[in-house]
Amino acid sequence: MLGLSYFSFADLWSPLFLAAILLLIAGYFVVIGPLSGKFPGSGPVSLWQRLLFVSGIIALYLAQGGPVSLLGHIMFSFHMLSMALSYLVAVPLIMLGIPEWIWRALLKVNPLRRLSFLAHPVVAALVFNGLFSLYHIPAIHDYVMLNFTVHRLYYLVLFLTAGLMWWTLINPLPERRMASGLGKIGFIFLNMVLLTPACGLIIFADQTLYATYSDPDTWAQAMGYCVSGDPAVLLQNFGGPTFFGLMSPKVDQQVGGIAMKFIQEIIFASMLAYVFYHWYKKENGQDDAEVSGSPSEVDGGHLTRA
């Protein structure tokens, strides 16, 4: 299927990355279990949260170490699927799976506190979407794909900035919230708008933009970082990425842009409905959890009484 039978188990499943992923999951369960008593205010973690964390880690593995990652070096549409899984699916699921008491412990680390300005909603949205759009400028994309260290570092930075972007929407700490319900709605629309130019460039381009998916030599060099053996053998055996393609490079490119925008729209539309529902309940005095008692909210980074 899709030419996967031509590649080895190691090429498809990245055993070292899989081992790292399994260790990360094991570490999570150790922290929320035997080591939880070392965290102030710790408590039991629900089964739902555990499932969210594990699901997010699995999504990240499939996108960056599993078959989707390999196919992302062959077809641009799968590259964009990998992007969506990594930063629009895996990141929020992982964050939702981390309990409040771990977040409070993490945010006490001094280097993180000094970088807190990056979590400001507008800054976070501009940084993540800016880096994502910059990456998909053809010359930059091909350079990153052909330089292994730069590739890994850029993806790590995208992962971290995606976390900063999602923090505005799924921050579980009432004392650190920087946006009201209406502010979150505006933030969602801002993210939807900021990603549109990059997707539009890809969808409506009248030619193939990326040598990685159209030039056989460039493709073979990029593939050399994710498969074993001599990249020259790939050229001898397959001739280039079109051997595996279900569609022409141009159509594949358009499908990738559409898929990225479509997935983003679905995810943010779902988040918009969720935020609007709870904001509406609060505004109408129906959200007892927030209306009763004496809640505190963050306004511009300073605690104020509601």
Rank of each mutant, 00 (worst) to 15 (best):
L4D: 09
S5M: 11
F7P: 06
S8Y: 02
F9D: 10
F9C: 07
D11S: 08
W13H: 04
S14Y: 09
P15T: 05
P15R: 09
L18V: 06
A19C: 11
A20G: 12
L23N: 00
A26K: 15
A26T: 11
V30D: 00
V31K: 04
I32G: 01
G37M: 00
F39T: 02
F39D: 01
G43L: 12
G43P: 10
G43A: 07
P44I: 01
L47A: 12
L52G: 01
A59H: 07
A59E: 05
L60A: 15
L62T: 05
A63V: 00
Q64R: 15
G66M: 08
P67R: 09
V68Q: 04
S69R: 15
L70V: 10
G72Y: 04
F78Y: 13
L81P: 03
A84K: 01
A84I: 05
L85S: 03
S86L: 10
Y87C: 14
Y87Q: 12
A90C: 02
V91A: 09
V91Y: 03
I94Q: 11
I94K: 14
M95C: 00
W101R: 03
I102A: 06
K108G: 02
K108F: 10
V109A: 11
N110L: 15
R113I: 14
L118C: 09
A119I: 12
A119R: 15
V127F: 14
F132I: 02
P138C: 15
H141D: 04
H141Q: 02
Y143P: 13
V144K: 05
V144W: 00
V150A: 14
L153M: 12
L164T: 02
T168P: 03
T168W: 01
L169N: 01
I170H: 02
L173C: 02
E175N: 10
A179T: 01
S180G: 08
G186D: 05
L190S: 10
M192L: 14
L194A: 01
T196I: 12
A198P: 05
I203G: 02
F204N: 04
A205K: 06
D206E: 10
Q207H: 13
T208M: 09
L209H: 08
A211M: 13
S214H: 15
D215T: 08
D215F: 03
T218V: 15
C226H: 15
S228W: 05
D230K: 01
P231L: 09
A232C: 11
V233T: 13
L234N: 04
L235D: 04
P241W: 11
T242A: 10
F243I: 05
F244L: 10
L246W: 14
K250R: 13
V251Q: 02
G257I: 07
G257S: 10
A259W: 02
M260S: 06
K261D: 03
F268C: 11
M271W: 09
Y274C: 00
V275R: 00
H278L: 15
W279T: 06
W279S: 07
Y280L: 15
G293K: 09
G300T: 12
H302D: 12
A306M: 13
